[in-house]
Design a binder for these strands. Structure first.
Lengths: 298, 298
DNA sequence: GCAAAGCCATAGAAGCACTCTATGACGTGA
DNA sequence: TCACGTCATAGAGTGCTTCTATGGCTTTGC
């Protein structure tokens, strides 16, 4: 769903949180590089927007009201997410210039990397990371040719000449909307899954191939598609708002499952697990920055 | 730290995610209630801002590029946080009008309630919740006088005439910046903690009183303050950027500890735990909406 | 007490950015 | 081949936010 048009600006929330942390509007204005009247007016506008007083202004600074304390706490959550996005974007834009070049598969880049990068950028503010996103074979190519220092992949591959470390786990899971019949028993036989049309990525996607292979192991045929979509986000949206199941990476729907927007269905006998691993050229010394990043991850 | 001035607008990210989910700029524009050219221009502006193409435009719609897929995934995280903030704000603003009136203590309201409310508002879009934030005694008062339907508190109190259910746990923990000497051994004797000036809330705060009581149990005196601040956010910011410890609710620093901005220090023998509980008038039938909310929480 | 310094609010002008409507170009599907 | 969908461009208008300059107010230090 779309956010209401009256939703406060991210910049205003950021400014307000700074006021609460620093204790005065002036200092927050300085920290954000805007004039004090501008900051004052933006806070006032925020208060009008929310329909509540957020600050008790005094001659020696401003303290948050009770409501202000709570709103500031809520705002910090969203600002943290914003910083993770920012860390990811910086790495993405750094393209060539980065000191440490990493290549990651889609799933890892989308759901795990931002936190790692955000933490790393705070611990090493002077070092930039360059991020590229690619499929597993490209990741391995890059490492072999020395055009990347560290890779992250999610498929068990031939890794001759590469060292590796496991950094997490992933699994393909079956999910449905809470209103779907499968959501109540929360379990369904694998035959029923194979016989049901699914929302899927187009043929050629890795997860679709993995599902087909797992069904073949059960002596079952190709899964059929009720809808073929071009991106994981589109698949997820279609399952949330529609009434067809899909089989998808658990990392991709972890937040929706936690929020109750999707329900994970148990399919006895069907288990499509994969370990997420960091890989790098064997023999050569891993750059110290790469070591630091791997240490942070653990 | 402040977000860069060039950080993309929340509305633009929201719009872009809708494009990826819906498959075309026009449909996303309609979903957001703006004209198609406006949406097109905003997406283009976003692309210029990030310095990368996000969409492959075609005559039958727009599909995200590889970079677009990743950025959309990152953006969804921040939008999820925004929706939680929105859910909290709605409840806060609902003041009188809500169908279900809940009263919560600060810690629960700040760190747990938004997720619950966001989920609830999706499951029950037609029912509004009115939220008030207050200290424990006020929460109990409201319930006894029938001016609230459901309360959440974090202190063990006299609960005559009230039913309760445990919904979580909290604990006061000692935290320092990663550069602080205590961060390396990660443990410190309780005597050293009592002898060290701390960053603290002003006298009168509940957490400060709880710490003083726990130290008294060890035969130690009042903790001294190197800095007294007016809000939990200010305390947290001072500890992150300074070099003094504090003792604070684990919920309030869970995110910073996970991100490596703060380090939790073990203090053998010092344990200040408290259960988080939902409370409501005994005997009377709990409103069905309250039951639904409690079910969601579990 | 008194002056200085800090804080916040107001006013007015300038500039920027965004929106909308109208239109055109392009490819798809019937 | 025609109709419909997609997205892009152009131009006008509006609204908003910013800045500088100023004033009132309280705390702090002498």
């Amino acid at each position: 769903m779309a956010l209401p048009a009256s939703f406060p600006e991210l910049a205003s929330l950021d400014l307000f949180v700074s006021v609460v942390e620093l204790g005065s509007v002036s200092q927050a204005a300085a920290a954000h590089g805007v004039s004090q009247p501008s900051a004052s007016s933006r806070i006032k506008h925020l208060e009008r927007q929310l329909g509540m007083r957020l600050l008790n202004r005094g001659p020696s600074g401003s303290l948050p009201t009770d409501a202000g304390v709570v709103v500031a706490g809520w705002a910090e959550t969203i600002l943290r997410a914003a910083h993770e996005l920012e860390a990811g974007l910086s790495a993405f834009q750094a393209a060539q210039a980065g000191r440490l070049r990493i290549v990651a598969s889609f799933t890892i880049a989308e759901y795990l990397l931002p936190q790692w990068l955000d933490r790393f950028s705070r611990d090493h503010p002077r070092d930039s990371i360059a991020l590229e996103v690619a499929n597993s074979t490209t990741v391995i190519d890059r490492l072999r040719h020395g055009t990347a220092d560290l890779g992250f992949i999610e498929t068990p591959s031939e890794l001759d000449g590469l060292d590796e470390a496991i950094v997490g786990n992933d699994e393909l899971v079956t999910v449905v909307a809470p209103s779907h019949p499968w959501a109540t028993p929360r379990t369904v036989p694998v035959e029923a899954l194979a016989a049901t049309p699914l929302v899927m990525r187009e043929a050629g996607s890795g997860t679709r191939a993995a599902l087909a292979a797992a069904l073949r192991d059960h002596g079952l045929g190709e899964p059929s598609a009720v809808l073929e979509l071009g991106s994981t986000s589109a698949v997820r949206a279609a399952v949330v708002h529609g009434n067809s199941p899909t089989v998808i990476s658990r990392l991709a729907v972890a937040a929706e499952v936690a929020a109750g927007q999707l329900v994970e269905v148990n399919v006895p006998g069907l288990s499509i697990a994969r370990e997420l691993r960091a890989v790098w050229p064997a023999g050569t010394a891993l750059p110290s920055l790469a070591c630091a990043l791997l240490d942070d991850i653990r």
